[in-house]
Design a protein around this nucleic acid. Structure first.
Lengths: 127, 127
DNA sequence: GAGGATCTGTTAGTTTTCTAGCAGGCTGGC
DNA sequence: GCCAGCCTGCTAGAAAACTAACAGATCCTC
């Protein structure tokens, strides 16, 4: 189950923006939201998200800067697991293949080397 | 932007189940939902999703069998793109690496061969 | 030190989501 | 026929999400 599963539509959008940017003020989040709600509404949501423990803030010269409360690594893993579960029958290999297949053109030589290395590593460990 | 972004919490949960199972009756969707709403509520949501065009149904001896209205391939791509965007700075390679890294143990030899082949292919085309 | 700009918190109201319950149709067994 | 079981559609009310507007605080400029 995804980490974002108990959240409302708006809360999820806001949390996504925070994951994407790492950290952001209420105004920045507001600017990134698709259908331009009121700034006040965004702030209210940020406070709610903080209450629920999904977000934290620190004061930075007079304004609040928000960031996700979970470690990025954990969030990434959770997001991937959810996609693999619901769209790839639980097979990470299928997901990885789809990823490679649809982005083949944009991968650099370094990317490919890195992925090859990971595969070799898995091969050695799996033996 | 994810295909599921305009949906409410429940609708998203329901749609996820349909993607996971491919097709399902209202009762099956109901059984898979985490916090057990009423069967009637689930049916209402399915009808709403159908109105919005996210889901379609066909009658199968007296009951409705629902399935996602978009092709699975498109849904998969969209889901991956969204995760890559919001959690991996838009880099499919990073996402693929995370996938390989965290699932290395469960990958079979065949999986690894297939992925190697994809990487080789990308290498040839990218040259 | 008054006015403006920018931020937060709170309040109260609207809108949407979410839900249970009931009515009606079809099927199969008694 | 008639009852039980399962399904759909509908309706109305509760709950939650969402929002605008206002009030207070701080900083900067004139």
């Amino acid at each position: 189950m995804s980490i974002q599963n108990g959240l409302s539509r708006r809360e999820r959008q806001i949390l996504d923006i925070l994951f994407k940017r790492g950290r952001a003020t209420a105004a920045e989040v507001h600017a990134d939201l698709p259908d331009r709600p009121s700034n006040s509404a965004v702030r209210a949501h940020l406070r709610t998200l903080e209450e629920k423990g999904h977000v934290k803030h620190e004061a930075e010269d007079l304004r609040y800067v928000y960031s996700p409360a979970v470690q990025p690594a954990k969030a990434r893993k959770s997001a991937l697991r959810h996609v693999v579960e619901t769209f790839f029958e639980g097979s990470p290999a299928n997901a990885a293949a789809a990823l490679l297949d649809s982005s083949a053109a944009s991968l650099t030589g370094d990317d490919l080397d890195r992925l090859s290395a990971l595969i070799d590593k898995a091969r050695r460990e799996g033996r």
